[in-house]
């Protein structure tokens, strides 16, 4: 592979990488974003960055890891800007879940789940349902969730990065988790 590399013509080398790795990169981006169009854009951007910064690559790492590192940065940037662009809608209503006395509405009251615990994500059918429920979240909340869980870092640092108060941020996470919980209960745990 490396001896094929022609540093005078990055396009030739990168074309061979597109042939080898674009499906892997696309599958990863699709898994991370659950959106075909966005995933395609991110992979295209990844190869554009690769062309433009080819001189920084210098064969130091394996091309696949290098491309994945670029793609993962692109994915995080995507969620950050996605989040920033949609922060106008500030009021988060919980009326759907709680009545005027702040009790759970009868149909929203959490029911006990029969959980085979941590192995549940090894079940492809559950994972599929989990992803479907994630996709139903508004983009803004989905981005917040992604930014919170991408690394298990303390949330306050993320808040500074994306310019939101911690209170506002946990309220969004809370609202998103209420919806996710309900969705899983309805489509998985109730059956």
């Amino acid at each position: 592979m490396l001896n094929e590399m022609d540093t005078n013509n990055p396009a030739t080398t990168i074309t061979s990488w597109v042939k080898l790795y674009s499906d892997n990169l696309f599958s990863w981006a699709l898994h991370k974003t659950s959106d075909r169009e966005i995933a395609e854009d991110l992979v295209q951007d990844t190869f554009l960055v690769a062309v433009n910064s080819f001189d920084k690559f210098e064969g130091k790492s394996n091309p696949k890891s290098w491309l994945f590192a670029i793609l993962n940065n692109k994915i995080n940037d995507h969620y950050r800007s996605n989040f920033r662009h949609q922060t106008t809608n500030n009021t988060i209503s919980l009326d759907e879940y709680f009545d005027a006395n702040e009790h759970w509405r009868p149909e929203e009251t959490p029911q006990p789940w029969l959980v085979e615990s941590s192995h549940i994500l090894d079940n492809p059918e559950f994972t599929k349902q989990f992803e479907e429920c994630m996709q139903r979240l508004p983009q803004h909340w989905f981005s917040a969730i992604h930014l919170k869980y991408i690394e298990e870092r303390k949330g306050v640092a993320i808040c500074q990065e994306i310019g939101i108060t911690p209170t506002n941020f946990w309220q969004i996470l809370h609202r998103a988790k209420l919806q996710l919980r309900k969705c899983l209960e309805t489509h998985w745990f109730k059956i």
Binding site: W113, S118, K148, Y149
Partner: peptide, 12 residues
């Protein structure tokens, strides 16, 4: 708490 575990595992 289960959702936290699932999200962490799924996303990160």
């Amino acid at each position: 708490k289960l959702l936290d575990k699932l999200l962490l595992k799924h996303i990160s």
